[in-house]
Amino acid sequence: MAVIAIVGVCSVARAQNYVIDQGTSDALTKYLHMSELPMVTAQFSTSAGGRKQLILTGFVATQFGRNDAERIAIGYLNDPSVNLVDQILLDPHVEDMRPPPGSAAAGPEAQSPNSPDQLWKKTMQGIYKNGGQSPAGSGPMLP
């Protein structure tokens, strides 16, 4: 039992040695948003030993969207050695947040109470209110 506890502690300690590359994280998050994945964020980090890690978080409506986010992110980084940690949650209601075809998603309605940005903020506030943890060191989820 003690061996399992030590292995678990070592794994946690090792994970904490990663340094977040905020520039790459922000650029990749923005790229995912432009690729019709507005509720997915990326956190890219590197360990002192040179290991690279990419954590994807957020929400998509389907497994296809989740696979697409992984494919787009790995393609963007163009580095097969990156350790991908996919924390994207599937929620079919995400599709309901998509603006109607032909509407300007980034226009003035972006401030309306039913805009994807506002719905995202409400969803995240509900998660945090009910005990969810904010990703350490992360900024706003949507640019």
Rank of each mutant, 00 (worst) to 15 (best):
E36V: 08
T46D: 12
F59P: 00
T41V: 13
Y128T: 08
P116T: 10
L56N: 05
M141I: 06
A106D: 15
P101K: 01
L54C: 03
A110N: 11
P92I: 11
A106Q: 10
T46L: 15
R14I: 09
D26Q: 12
I6R: 10
P101I: 04
K52E: 02
R66S: 13
T24N: 09
K129A: 15
P100M: 13
T24P: 09
Q118D: 08
E95T: 03
D79K: 05
L56D: 00
T29C: 05
A69I: 03
G132Y: 04
P113F: 08
F59L: 13
V82S: 07
Y31S: 09
A2F: 15
V82L: 09
E70C: 07
V9A: 15
W120E: 02
P135H: 00
A42S: 03
D21S: 06
T24E: 14
V85P: 01
G139Y: 10
G50K: 06
K122C: 02
S103F: 05
A61D: 13
I127V: 12
V12P: 04
T62A: 02
A5M: 12
P135F: 01
P113C: 09
D86A: 06
M141W: 07
A42R: 00
Y128I: 11
M97R: 03
E70G: 00
V60F: 03
I20Q: 09
G8L: 11
A110R: 14
I4N: 12
G131K: 07
S35E: 11
S81D: 08
Q16R: 13
K52F: 03
P140H: 06
T41Y: 08
S35I: 02
G75Q: 02
L28Q: 04
L54W: 04
A13L: 15
A42C: 01
D21T: 02
D79G: 04
M141P: 00
V3S: 15
A69D: 00
N114I: 11
I88M: 01
G49Y: 09
S134Q: 15
E109G: 07
A5Q: 12
P80E: 04
L56F: 03
S81L: 05
R66F: 03
K129M: 12
N114R: 10
G75F: 01
R71L: 08
G75I: 00
V85E: 06
V60T: 03
A61Y: 04
G107M: 14
D79T: 02
Q43M: 13
G126P: 11
I127T: 08
V19A: 15
L56E: 01
Q87E: 10
S25L: 12
D26A: 09
I55S: 04
M124I: 14
T46H: 08
C10R: 03
P108N: 10
V9W: 14
S35F: 02
G8H: 07
I74F: 00
M1L: 14
P135S: 04
G50Q: 08
E109N: 12
L84I: 09
D91M: 06
T29N: 05
D26T: 09
A61C: 03
L142M: 15
K122I: 10
N17C: 14
Q118F: 00
A69S: 05
K122E: 13
Q22C: 03
M34E: 15
H93G: 06
D96N: 05
G65A: 00
E70H: 00
A15I: 06
G23Q: 13
T24R: 10
G102T: 08
A48V: 14
P80Q: 02
V94C: 06
V3T: 15
T57M: 11
T57P: 05
K122V: 11
K129Y: 12
Q111C: 02
M141A: 09
